[in-house]
Amino acid sequence: MSMRTPLGRVRGLGSAKSGTEDFWWQRLTAVALVPLSIAVIVIGMGLLGRNHAAAVQILGSPLVAIVMLLFIVTSAYHMKLGMQVIIEDYVHGESAKLTLLIANIFFSIAVGAAAVYAVLKLSFGVV
């Protein structure tokens, strides 16, 4: 027997059954980003002092490109979740909060998509 009132059921309010989803993904992406960030530091340092042709060759090679793609996508999701928590903590005006939450998602996806495009172009395209 359901304890929910008819009004509550009609409005669709109540648990969305996904209350811990952001918490879980924040931790999951954090775990993934430990080895990925170390790998990207190594890749970045490997390019120190090298010219454009060498950078293109290294960044476009399969293993490096795959690591970069994983790093970018994981980072974009991790930073979207993190900035969302910051916004929700400090911005209390409804319109400002909504605007920033939207801007956060747009920024994260835009930066991530731009970086992914660059890596794919380095891998498949002609620079």
Binding site: V40, G44, L59, V111, A115, A118, K121, L122, G125
Partner: peptide
């Protein structure tokens, strides 16, 4: 990071 990758691909 994005600038780095986009610059290399440009």
């Amino acid at each position: 990071v994005a600038w780095w990758l986009i610059a290399a691909s440009t």
